[in-house]
Design a protein around this nucleic acid. Structure first.
Ligand SMILES: [Mn+2]
Ligand SMILES: [Mn+2]
Ligand SMILES: [Zn+2]
Ligand SMILES: [Zn+2]
Lengths: 146, 146
DNA sequence: TTCCTGTTTAGAATTATTCTAAATCCATGT
DNA sequence: ACATGGATTTAGAATAATTCTAAACAGGAA
């Protein structure tokens, strides 16, 4: 009944609802993303997945990631021109990219932050996505937020 | 005494102050970025620059852009995984990426917006960059903001 | 002029990602 | 059970933005 178990169960339903199959590859990729929420890259996910499913290919990891993103189960995080990272946190949140360590931290936002930011748009602009990213240095262990 | 003339004059000073030379290539790349503030990519800049300086190379355009960014004369704008764009607007501002047209619009922000966003960071986080980007659709001519 | 260093240039290299086409899987209909 | 067809996986090739390399070039100082 931890977040991983619950969300893994949700995976099959979500995929089936989208007319897609809950394949072992999709399940293991999703599980790996839930297990260590450190915003891994496709390559990092590939390495982690291979330890459980040594025959999986990198192309399949990319395919699975695209599927999970399209189903809304995983968020895609692009910072600068670095390799794309993947995030299972579906709450509205920002990202903090630590220059020094390269780590990416989730920054939880007050409930109305994104709504307020949308209001800054001039009339005629309609945003379906708002992305907020910080870059700088984080204290060595900023009270456990990865 | 328009913004282009003023900033072009500033270029030589800014470069010299950084111990760099105000070369013709750097000047024409900067001029092109000021002339049409539509957040062009390196390739688009290359094409525009070649019409004035046909012998310039793409590598030089990249080199000049890196120099201009490092001197703080131009902002680098990364949206999704699209090619990097370049922006001469040095005010604090956000970007709106129009899915339909591919255009990028500047969104001017109230004076304290970025400061307020910084306050959302937990203690221990110190951001030297805050990036805010919207994606969606803009009205065909949102009162002239490119 | 000669020297020194920064700059430009063409082309090769890198690398994240996407594409291609062939195998494999699997739900469904017979 | 078996056959069929579409979805999925896979290896490897291809793509494309950017960076790197190494050789020419430029221009100020000695
Ligand atoms: Mn997509
Ligand atoms: Mn840089
Ligand atoms: Zn996240
Ligand atoms: Zn801008």
């Amino acid at each position: 009944m931890n977040s991983t178990a619950k969300s893994c169960a949700a995976l099959a339903k979500q995929l089936t609802d989208s007319g897609l199959r809950p394949t072992p590859q999709r399940e293991v990729v999703f599980k790996v993303i839930l297990e260590k929420r450190d915003h891994p890259t496709a390559d990092e996910i590939y390495v982690r997945v291979k330890s459980q499913m040594p025959t999986i290919s990198l192309a399949t990891v990319y395919n699975c990631l695209e599927t999970l993103v399209h189903c809304g189960l995983v968020r895609q995080v692009n910072l600068e021109r670095a390799p794309t990272r993947y995030c299972p946190n579906l709450h509205e949140h920002a990202h903090f990219h630590d220059d020094t360590t390269g780590q990416v931290h989730d920054i939880e936002l007050p409930a109305d932050t994104i709504k307020e930011l949308r209001k800054l748009l001039p009339i005629g602009f309609d945003a379906n996505t708002v992305e907020l990213a910080f870059r700088g240095r984080a204290a060595s262990d900023p009270h456990g937020s990865n």
